[in-house]
Computed example of a mutant assay.
Amino acid sequence: MTAMRKPPQRGFCPSEFALRLQKMQSILQAEQLDAVFVTSPSNIRYFTGFDSQFWESPTRPWFVVVPREGSIIAVIPEIGAPEMARTWVDDIRTWPSPCPEDDGVSLMAATLSAVPRRFGRIGAEMGREMALRMPVADFLALRGRMPETEIVDGTPALWRARMIKTEAEVAHIRFICEVASDAYIGLPDLVAIGDTERTVVKRLRADMCARGADNVPFMPAISGPGGVPQIVCGPQDRVLTHGDVLFIDTGATYDGYFCDFDRVYAVGAIDDAARRANEAIWEATELGIRAARPGVTMESVWKVMAQALQDAGSIGNNVGRLGHGLGMQLTEPPSFRAGDETIIQPGMVLTIEPGMEYAPGKMIVHEEDIVIMDDGAHLLTIRAPKEMPVIS
């Protein structure tokens, strides 16, 4: 029988959202922005608590304005007003969408123009790991209607707000990490040699949902003799064969928050080269977890893991980094990579993700999710065993 963990309460209380607004407004003041407006599902949900399966439809744009002072303003299609009214947001302005002739542009221009002005600058989601979810032509039209205001990249301000998680956010991420960990541990009992990659994913995804995950939108699975050539595509109809390494990565969600970590399995048995590589990557993961402490840079932790992989005989790593931030998106800033000088702080949720190619076309990757606390990194996932679990 599937063991069930007790999930944290869904949603967040108004005081949580008030703290987010207060933090964002402090950042807007420091960044000399009169407001920031957001259009993407994760940012709208972060500030309002509003969620909808209607995000799957690209027809209608949605806007939320966070001013430097005052209350949050939702500027949304009429169809979303009843649900938005159930959130903590009081100021809800609507238009009859879809209306390609003017799909919220004039209403947004009027709303932004009425925001108290001090700096003459308003931020938008124009930077890395953000997406402006409105037609580019409409964005240009909006900017043209506001010649007295400069619309600039608000991404740095938004990530400053979202990068440090609250205790309630961490509780959500911890729960989905534990759910996925439990399912990974139980996977060898659900599959066998002769199953296909696609069958493995179907069973693992169903088990995660049965254990409490809301959704599993990300689950690449790849297998190959002694290792895998890549970690981003799949599953396919390839049959698991004795001697394979099976790699599975998982981005499951609970109440809007992701886990993101992988596991590798030995199919029957693996050769000595794969076994040694797996052990080396496990040790590099351990070093990364220990090195991730408040006050150090992301680059410094990357160097620790990169050196361990080099010493172990790595001949390459096409991933480009060795971990990243995690939260309402599968991947968030910052990154464990050369040149990322972001200072690690308590409240950050990060992935530790060393991997290496140890022979041409054969790579293994390990990944764990951690939260940074005053005394260092604490695991959110259940740590992978040092030896690969076996599928027989």
Rank of each mutant, 00 (worst) to 15 (best):
Thr331Phe: 12
Met4Phe: 14
Thr155Phe: 04
Met24Glu: 06
Ser52Val: 01
Gln29Gly: 07
Pro385Ala: 10
Gly256Thr: 06
Pro100Arg: 08
Ser97Tyr: 10
His172Val: 02
Ser97Ala: 15
Ser392Asp: 07
Leu240Met: 06
Ile382Trp: 00
Ala384Val: 04
Cys99Lys: 15
Ile343Leu: 15
Pro67Ser: 12
Gly288His: 08
Glu387Lys: 15
Pro61Leu: 10
Ala266Cys: 01
Met146Tyr: 10
Gly226Leu: 11
Tyr358Val: 07
Gln329Glu: 14
Gly347Asn: 05
Asp182Gly: 07
Gly11Leu: 06
Ala384Thr: 08
Thr331Arg: 04
Ser392Ala: 04
Val365Lys: 15
Ala266His: 00
Leu350Val: 01
Met163Ser: 12
Arg60Cys: 10
Gly355Leu: 08
Arg133Ile: 08
Ala291Leu: 11
Ala141Ser: 13
Trp159Phe: 15
Leu140Gln: 09
Ala269Phe: 08
Glu101Thr: 12
Thr196Asn: 03
Asp90Arg: 15
Tyr257Pro: 03
Arg86Ile: 05
Arg263His: 08
Asp51His: 09
Met363Gly: 14
Cys259Met: 09
Ser42His: 12
Ile352Gly: 09
Leu132Gln: 14
Cys177Glu: 04
Gly327Phe: 00
Ile79Asp: 11
Ala35Gly: 07
Ala273Leu: 12
Ile372Pro: 05
Val301Gly: 07
Pro61Cys: 15
Asp182Cys: 03
Asp91Asn: 13
Leu330Met: 13
Asn318Gly: 08
Leu204Gly: 02
Met328Val: 08
Gly186Met: 03
Phe139Val: 03
Ala180Trp: 06
Val267Ser: 03
Pro220Gly: 11
Gly323Trp: 07
Met126Ser: 13
Ile44Asn: 10
Glu16Gln: 15
Thr331Met: 15
Ile344Asn: 13
Gly212Ile: 02
Leu158Lys: 06
Gln25Arg: 12
Trp159Ile: 02
Arg293Asp: 01
Trp55Thr: 05
Asp262Ile: 00
Asp34Glu: 05
Leu379Pro: 01
Pro389Cys: 10
Val170Cys: 04
Ile122Phe: 07
Val89Ala: 10
Cys13Pro: 05
Cys209Ile: 14
Asp374Pro: 06
Ala252Thr: 00
Phe17Trp: 14
Ala30Arg: 12
Glu178Lys: 05
Arg337Ala: 12
Thr2Met: 04
Asp311Val: 10
Phe336Lys: 01
Asp272Thr: 12
Met363Tyr: 09
Gln230Lys: 09
Arg117Lys: 13
Gly194Thr: 06
Ile27Ser: 06
Val170Trp: 00
Asn278Met: 07
Arg205Gln: 05
Gly144Arg: 11
Ala85Val: 10
Ala269Gln: 10
Ala171Gln: 11
Leu379Arg: 09
Phe54Pro: 07
Arg10Leu: 01
Ser97Thr: 01
